[in-house]
């Protein structure tokens, strides 16, 4: 009987605590930013460790081959593999650097050190924070197009809300016919343009760019490509499903746009 009472009290305490957390959103937000920031060194370490594992994985395979063949050619192959990994990284960074010079805005490169642990929201954790000059609502992009915007800033890390998150709205234009709409994130790593006029001739394959409204995203940056156009029952507008210009779950480096 006493145990039963204790259990009920525990359940009530835990559930009330969870509800209180939801209700005290501004205080909780502040605590979250600071707590998330303290995890940055750990995330950076894990990130470097994963990079290290990625580097040594081909070696393990080659070492195995070397043991079997005991041949000098295999040694050379291993060296070539090693060089290739470094070349790939170089090419990626050079690409980012060239792109940085090409865009008409000042930008700050950042490395992705973590991803959203929840299935419900799409975000990235980057290794730049207030100490590096990151500011709220800064646009974030990659060499292939828009990525998202900064929503939470710690001292040494920040969270980027991706364009595939349902809470992010972006004003967009269909490049071919210059018709506008509002793009929101959608489950399944896709975006959805809502409020497309009923007489619009938008069709699959059309490129979508940012409209530049709202002052967060610069105008004319590639967002993605229309996959499907349709009309939901009872709505006065068409919608379009957009495939982002890149796979946002595999991003490693991004640029924060300073405007």
């Amino acid at each position: 009987m006493r145990n039963q009472k204790k259990r009920i009290v525990k359940i009530l305490v835990v559930l009330s605590a969870a509800i209180l957390i939801i209700l005290s959103s501004s205080a909780a937000r502040l605590i979250r930013i600071n707590l998330a920031d303290t995890s940055t060194p750990l995330l950076k370490t894990v990130h470097s460790f994963l990079g290290f594992l990625e580097d040594i994985a081909p070696f393990a395979v080659l070492r195995e081959e070397n043991r079997i063949l005991r041949d000098r050619i295999d040694l050379l192959t291993r060296m070539a593999e090693e060089g290739q990994a470094i070349n790939d990284e170089n090419a990626r960074l050079r690409n980012l650097l060239d792109f940085r010079k090409m865009i008409p805005y000042a930008s700050m490169p950042a490395q992705v050190i973590g991803r959203d642990p929840s299935n419900w929201s799409n975000s990235l954790i980057i290794d730049k924070g207030a100490a590096n000059g990151v500011k709220q609502n800064m646009a974030v992009m990659s060499t292939r197009g828009i990525v998202g915007r900064i929503v939470e800033i710690g001292k040494y890390s920040s969270k980027v809300l991706l364009i595939t998150d349902p809470n992010l709205k972006v004003g967009v234009l269909i490049r071919r016919n210059r018709q506008g709409g509002v793009m929101v994130g959608r489950p399944g790593d896709r975006c959805k343009i809502i409020y497309i006029a009923l007489d619009s001739d938008a069709k699959p394959g059309d490129k979508v760019i940012t409209a530049g409204f709202g002052g967060v995203f610069p105008k004319g940056i590639l967002v993605g490509e229309i996959e499907k156009v349709g009309k939901e029952e009872g709505r006065l507008y068409k919608y379009a499903i957009v495939k982002p210009s890149q796979d946002l779950s595999k991003l490693e480096e991004v640029l924060c746009i300073i405007r």
């Binding site: 957390i21 929201s121 939470e152």
Partner: peptide, 11 residues
């Protein structure tokens, strides 16, 4: 560590 509504996963 998420950008979800704070507390929703806890509950």
């Amino acid at each position: 560590l998420s950008v979800d509504i704070f507390g929703i996963n806890t509950l």
